[in-house]
Design a binder for these strands. Structure first.
Lengths: 197, 197
DNA sequence: GGCGGTGTTTTACAAGTGTCCATGATTATG
DNA sequence: CATAATCATGGACACTTGTAAAACACCGCC
């Protein structure tokens, strides 16, 4: 990232960043990410190439920023779980899925041109793995004494990602209760009845 | 892949394929995969660029082939588990780790320049995920009635990959028994004592 | 209004990418 | 050995990429 996101964004910068992410997501709904060129992107967004390179290192950099941009629309992310219970993780899980559900039409169009093991999806998964690592490692699912904490955290993050992939990238329709069942099954946790409220 | 690997390779083709994979792995031990250019690769391997493009679509294609090349040295892979028991999966797991252990010096050098979420490692993981999917889905770990088989298979593959990453890419030293413990823990299987032989 | 700093735009450039084609070399066949 | 098919080679081509430097527009500020 060339541009410093730490300092407050000017009106113009916010506009430019938004335009580029919108254009990329729009193009990704028409063709594979790999065959999108920076030239095409700038032409479509109606910016000169130099402006693009003022903000981003390359198109992969922009892709990363896209996920950040999207995840910032999910207001809950700036306030992640400082709770330490399993139920907190489950709440986070539910909110994440609810937020992603709004983007489902976008995703399913993009998936028509971008394979699950392609560049775009890898980048998506990789971004959310990072997010999840942070949230999960602050939780106390690590009650597994015989597993290194990092390994356990990574495993929980992987399990959640697997379900995100299943629902949002592979377009399976699953009820919320069923998702919880799946998650507990994956984590090796004894199934908890839903009337735990 | 431009070249047809299905038909029997000529002497020259085998030599060329080997030279390119060796050169790529050699270069990857000196710098990040992203900053290796096809030009540099050809210069180092002493082949004209046109020859490279006779065999591969691009450098990512060559990278994929590298993993195939390496995995073909593991003689056990052409004869994967047609067994259906957990113990068969465990045997496969052990043989895979033994085979990878021979490449550990190579891996650890490459990891100095290629981050765990970088292009090279992603490609590596992705290749072995494909291999594992095939092997795992022919196994009967899918005794989980409340989980779709694909999901279960993917989960088992993910768990094994997590351990591969832990040992070979993140360079942790773990005994075989401990690895088994980890694996069972990840899979949510009740811990089985090692004197099961 | 004029000034100076910021960031944008323009243009140019060197290097890399992937394709194509004409020519030569190798190879597995008869 | 001779032949035809296959593959290697070198050069040329259109295109993309990332950078650099100079001209320009937009700000708040005196």
């Amino acid at each position: 990232m060339k541009y410093d996101l730490a300092k407050p964004l000017t009106r113009g910068a916010r506009r430019t960043l938004g335009d580029f992410t919108d254009t990329l997501l729009q193009l990704a709904a028409e063709k594979s990410f790999d065959q999108i060129s920076v030239n095409e992107l700038c032409q479509r967004a109606d910016y000169p190439r130099a402006t693009f390179y003022n903000y981003f290192d390359d198109k992969y950099d922009l892709l990363d920023y896209c996920w950040l941009h999207i995840s910032q629309e999910f207001q809950f992310l700036p306030a992640p779980a400082d709770g330490k219970e399993n139920s907190d993780l489950l709440m986070y899980f539910d909110r994440l899925f609810a937020a992603l559900k709004q983007k489902l039409p976008t995703f399913s169009t993009i998936m028509k041109f971008n394979p699950v093991d392609g560049t775009l999806v890898n980048s998506f998964i990789s971004f959310f793995r990072g997010k999840l690592r942070v949230v999960v490692s602050s939780c106390q699912i690590l009650q597994t004494p015989d597993l290194p904490p990092e390994l356990a955290a990574e495993h929980v993050a992987n399990s959640i990602l697997l379900l995100i992939e299943w629902v949002f990238l592979k377009n399976h329709v699953v009820s919320q209760e069923q998702l919880h069942q799946y998650l507990f099954q994956l984590l090796g946790i004894v199934k908890i009845p839903d009337e735990s409220i």
